[in-house]
Computed example of a mutant assay.
Amino acid sequence: MQSVAHDLSDSEISSLAVFFSTQHPPRVQGEHPPPPALVMAGKELAELGAAPDVPACFSCHAADGKGNGARYPSIAGEPVAFVINRLHEFQARAKAGTPSPGTMTAVAATLNERQIEEAAAYLSVIDP
């Protein structure tokens, strides 16, 4: 992908980001439903956040996680493993250097493993 993206202009990258942020792929089949307790805790985290450092997922990713443009993509309906892996990637970035306040890297740095599992559980069961 890097060899293709290397030649793209900022405008082309922005257009592609907007296009892909509006796509709604089918839900991944074959996953076992997450435990209801995790889903309910994840719903609270997504809608309300966790005091004092964790904002609600939907405060940036819009109502029901449907996304708010290229910067805040849709997170609704993502598979559990994808959400967990992605949040771990953000945490790794935070460990590599101090993240800018308000970024997903900064938010992920404040999450504990249980909160990551809760968010992933809830996001996986809501419709994209």
Rank of each mutant, 00 (worst) to 15 (best):
A5E: 06
H6N: 05
L8I: 01
L8C: 03
S9T: 15
E12M: 07
E12Y: 01
E12I: 00
I13V: 13
I13M: 13
S14Y: 04
S14H: 07
S15G: 15
L16I: 11
A17Y: 01
A17W: 01
V18R: 09
F19E: 09
F20T: 06
T22G: 14
Q23H: 04
Q23D: 03
P25K: 03
R27E: 14
V28I: 13
V28D: 11
V28W: 07
G30H: 04
G30W: 03
H32Q: 15
P34W: 02
P36G: 07
A37V: 10
A37E: 13
V39N: 01
M40L: 15
A41S: 14
A41N: 11
E44S: 14
E44R: 11
L48F: 10
G49C: 13
G49V: 10
A50R: 07
A50G: 01
A51N: 14
P52T: 10
P52S: 12
P55S: 02
C57R: 13
C57G: 12
C57Q: 14
F58M: 10
A62F: 09
A62S: 13
A62W: 08
A62R: 15
A63G: 10
A63I: 15
G67H: 00
R71Q: 09
R71G: 09
P73F: 01
P73H: 06
S74T: 08
I75R: 03
V80Y: 13
V80H: 11
F82H: 06
F82W: 12
V83L: 06
V83K: 01
I84S: 10
R86K: 09
E89N: 07
E89C: 04
F90M: 05
F90V: 04
R93D: 14
K95C: 00
A96I: 11
T98M: 12
T98N: 13
T98Q: 14
S100I: 01
P101N: 06
P101Q: 13
G102M: 02
T103A: 03
A106C: 07
A106G: 05
V107Y: 04
A108G: 09
A109H: 08
A109K: 05
A109P: 02
T110W: 09
L111W: 10
N112D: 15
E113M: 09
E118G: 01
A119K: 00
A119G: 00
A119W: 00
A121N: 00
Y122K: 00
L123K: 01
V125D: 09
I126W: 06
D127C: 11
